[in-house]
């Protein structure tokens, strides 16, 4: 993925800071394509050395398009009730046509607007099959189904994956270059369940995305090897609990993306600590297929100066290695 770039690219998941820069709330940015695009534009102007443009992350889009109720919890929309009780319930849901189904339509318009603003590679998101299934069924019900009805569990994942797949097709047409498959619920299940049921559904989704990345946040140390076996994805984005230096030789040709702690280090850390963490990570990943990013989405309250410190450290590292 990074073979054309001899030095690590810089791609922190920080677009939410863009909302702060334009003094917009998530409610406005996620529901209004003009505000969304303005936030991304402000972010890219403030941090011109970042190598990618990211749309805002919202893991509720597909579920809301399927009719799940939601509430704003903190700053983000969160699914507040789970309408499906069985595999049949899930499979009876019509796959939304994204350009006719809010909030998919709204986000597609946002991505199309962002595309016109920047020539940088544009990254957008879909949720993975297990994560959408958890929204639809509730995670406890989904776990019970996975243990007691393996075929039903696979049917649910297949249908959920088809929803995200159709949405991903439209995101690509709207201008996204990369699509990150957000699959945090993969962490709940065992690596074996991931291998047997979740991975085939993720692969089916990823096969229509030329540049698909799998993102799972949290402590994925037990799962990372299983994730790296996923076909049709070119990169794996993991959280700060994973030691990339231990993982880098086990991911084959996939790019590792991460994994500075977005809260403990980037939001709360001193600049010297941020610098130390960045340099340590880049040294550890020297020569590997690697993109410097945060382990997960940054908090909008992260001081912009802290992101400056991350970028400065990465640029200094690049400069030093180029000189050598």
């Amino acid at each position: 993925m990074t073979k054309d770039f001899p030095l690590p690219l810089i791609a922190p998941l920080g677009t939410s800071i863009g909302m702060r820069l334009i003094r917009a709330e998530a409610r406005e940015a996620l529901f209004n394509p003009s505000v969304h695009a303005e936030a991304v534009s402000a972010f890219l102007s403030r941090f011109p050395d970042i190598d990618f443009a990211f749309s805002l992350m919202d893991t509720s889009i597909e579920a809301r398009a399927l009719g799940c109720p939601y509430e704003f919890m903190g700053r983000v929309p969160a699914i507040s009730a789970n309408p499906c009780a069985s595999p049949d319930d899930v499979c009876s849901l019509n796959i939304p046509e994204p350009w006719n189904a809010d909030p998919m339509r709204i986000n597609l318009e946002s991505v199309a607007k962002i595309r016109t603003l920047t020539g940088k590679p544009l990254v957008s998101y879909v949720v993975g099959p297990a994560t959408l299934a958890a929204h639809l069924c509730g995670i406890t019900s989904l776990i019970k189904i996975s243990r007691r009805d393996a075929q039903g569990f696979k049917r649910i994942l297949g249908h959920a994956g088809a929803v995200s797949r159709r949405y991903a097709e439209c995101l690509l047409k709207a201008g996204a270059d990369f699509i990150v498959i957000l699959e945090p619920q993969a962490l709940i299940f065992s690596p074996k369940t991931f291998d047997d049921a979740i991975r085939p559904a993720v692969e089916k989704l990823a096969e229509i995305i030329p540049q698909a990345i799998l993102h799972v946040c949290g402590d994925t140390n037990h799962h990372a090897a299983a994730f790296s076996e996923t076909a049709s994805i070119i990169g794996i984005s993991l959280d700060w609990q994973v030691d990339f230096s231990q993982l880098k030789d086990r991911v084959g040709l996939k790019t590792l993306i991460g994994n500075i702690d977005p809260v403990g280090v980037l939001q709360k850390g001193r600049h010297d600590v941020i610098r130390e963490k960045v340099l340590h990570l880049m040294d550890a990943m020297k020569g590997s297929d690697f993109i410097l990013s945060t382990g997960c989405d940054m908090v909008p309250d992260t001081p912009p100066e802290n992101l400056d410190a991350l970028i400065a450290a990465a640029l200094d590292w690049r400069k030093q290695k180029s000189a050598n």
């Binding site: 995670i139 406890t140 776990i143 019970k144 996975s146 243990r147 962490l187 709940i188 299940f189 065992s190 690596p191 369940t193 037990h222």
Partner: peptide, 14 residues
Amino acid sequence: TGEYFLADLVMAGE
């Protein structure tokens, strides 16, 4: 010890 995962804990709870 990493033999069971969160889903297994939830199942035990159920």
